[in-house]
Write a protein that binds this DNA or RNA. Structure first.
Length: 491
RNA sequence: GGCGGCAUAGCCAAGUGGUAAGGCAGCGGUCUGCAAAACCGUUAUUCUCCGGUUCGAAUCCGGAUGCCGCCUCCA
């Protein structure tokens, strides 16, 4: 299995340090506000990676931290006249709610920076002893120029960066790229006692402390958003490796940014949508589907239209699942379908494509988690299945055990992406009737449907069509089915 | 200014040497009182442009153009 490693800028064969076990640390969020769709992407990407590694048989230890103390949290607390603890608790709860909605499993360990102040202080002490720390007025800094590998992750050299010289001059620091390990607190700010006086940890050191605490000096995969490559992950490497002299992580995995109109979604640009805003308009599984539709390292442009397209696509998958469910009801699951079988609507080559879904799924996921290709395979299988399902039950009787088997395959493989796990009928219905957009009372809709039913019964099609048109103007589309007339919101 | 990435149909998108997956939209059809939904079929002689390597290039190399990211807090 191949994983793209930011450190080498290549796909590399994945070999965990301890066979059968994977240790993974993914940078979480700073809890000072609601999360936006960019945070959702990162969370979903690593959730899928962990699920796939487990599906592949690895025992995974997944750590995702919360940064629960930093300048932005303190500022927020001051603005809202709340304690920093309250701010942190509020947004941890908000994050958890969002993750649950998106089907992102809890990580095995979800540590908070403030639970690891002692670990942090211990590492800074070690760095001090080894000459990798200096004090200025209660702050402690890391001297980047002393660490030989500085820049190896982001592929830049200190000289190049200094030539760019777009860094604020901070006379306190020996080098503009030196960063704080420990920050002295001002009066009224939260503070922990330390050998350098009361203060709080710098941003980067907390991750070094937490990953070491739970995963050891060197672990398998360290991940996060691509915008963390520099300086955050570069600095983590510098601190940790300067302190213990071993590589921090073997594979560095970074997800691409979510953009809006091709521009990065970010707080500072103000062009972001919170997860909650998006979930008010789209089903969480639609959002999840949208996020894994393209490769995790590519930028992903967000728009309502793109979400609407994802919704249509997901409905196609669920429609076929619903038809399958009806077609195979009560059929025992076969161990494995025959290697060749003539099914109505399929040639032998197409039949074998159906059977090879799982190996093709794994081949795609083994190639740096290519979920876009996986979805292509799923849709291909769905098309072939629909062709079989077009035939009437008598004609396709021979196919029923195979359909039962492939349905289970779709559910199992969909489960690895944490998609397709809902009841198809319920999910499709809820996607069709988005009541929050409604401008007409559902009871009134039912009345009109009944009036139209009467008209149709009397073959008064002019009146029936007038009623249909009236509802169209209210944004409601009618669908006549053998079970009666249903309605949906016009998209 | 430095470093890196990307460019594939109307839109989104996979594909890193062997002759262009998939989705959305569109169009044609089946079905329907008419529709809708659903389903089937169909849509790139070609992968931004120019040159090179090769029997063979979307894929490798060189150059050009355009867009984006990082270099400051960022998922």
């Amino acid at each position: 299995m191949l994983i793209y490693n930011t450190l080498s800028r290549k796909k590399e064969e994945f070999t965990p340090l301890k066979p059968g076990n994977v240790t993974l640390y993914a940078c979480g969020v700073t809890v000072y506000d609601d999360c936006h769709i960019g945070h959702a992407r990162s969370a979903v990407v690593f959730d899928v990676i962990v699920r796939y590694l487990r599906f592949r048989g690895f025992t995974v230890t997944w750590v995702r931290n919360f940064t629960d103390i930093d300048d932005k949290i303190i500022r927020r607390a001051q603005q809202e006249n709340l304690s920093w603890e309250t701010v942190a608790h509020t947004y941890i709860a908000s994050f958890q709610r969002d993750m649950q909605a998106l089907g992102v499993g809890p990580a095995d360990i979800e540590p908070r920076a403030t639970e690891h102040i002692e670990d942090i202080i211990r590492i800074i002490k070690t760095l001090e002893i080894k000459g990798f720390a200096y004090q200025r007025d209660g702050d402690v800094y890391f001297p980047v120029a002393k660490f030989p590998g500085y820049g190896k992750l982001s592929g830049r050299s200190l000289d190049d960066m200094l030539a760019g010289a777009r860094v604020d001059v901070n006379l306190q620091k020996d080098n503009p790229f030196d960063f704080a390990l420990w920050k002295a607190s001002k009066p009224g700010e939260p503070a922990w006692e330390s050998p350098w006086g009361p203060g709080r940890p710098g941003w980067h050191i907390e991750c070094s402390a937490m990953c070491q605490h739970y995963l050891g000096d060197t672990f398998d995969i360290h991940g996060g958003g691509a915008d963390l490559i520099f300086p955050h992950h570069e600095n983590e490497i510098a601190q940790s490796e300067a302190a213990h002299g071993k590589p921090l992580a073997c594979y560095w995995v970074h997800n691409g940014m979510v953009t809006i109109n091709q521009e990065k979604m970010s707080k500072s640009l103000g062009n972001f949508f919170t997860i909650q805003e998006v979930l008010a308009k789209f089903h969480p599984e639609v959002v999840r589907f949208f996020l894994i539709q393209n490769h995790y390292r590519s930028p992903l442009d967000f728009s309502d239209q793109a979400l609407a397209e994802a919704e249509s696509a997901l409905m196609r998958l669920y429609s076929t699942l619903m038809r399958l469910e009806q077609a195979v009801e009560g059929t025992a699951l076969p161990e494995a379908p025959p290697e060749s079988l003539s099914l109505p609507g399929l040639n032998p080559e197409e039949y074998s494509r159906l059977l090879s879904l799982r190996p093709r799924f794994m081949e795609a996921m083994d190639d740096d988690f290519n979920t876009a290709q996986v979805l292509g395979h799923l849709f291909e299988v769905v098309r072939l299945l629909n062709r079989v399902l077009e035939h009437n039950p008598e004609e396709r009787a021979i196919a029923t055990p195979v359909l039962a088997w492939i349905r289970q395959e779709l559910l199992t493989l969909g489960g690895v992406l944490n998609l397709l796990q809902h009841d198809p009928q319920i999910l499709l219905q809820s996607l069709r009737q988005k009541t929050e957009a409604l401008t007409i009372d559902p009871a009134r809709i039912e009345e009109l449907i009944e009036a139209r039913r009467q008209a149709r019964k009397q073959k008064d099609f002019a009146l029936a069509d007038a009623i249909r048109q009236q509802l169209v103007e209210a944004g409601i589309l009618l669908e006549d089915t053998p079970q009666g007339t249903t309605w949906r919101v016009k998209s």
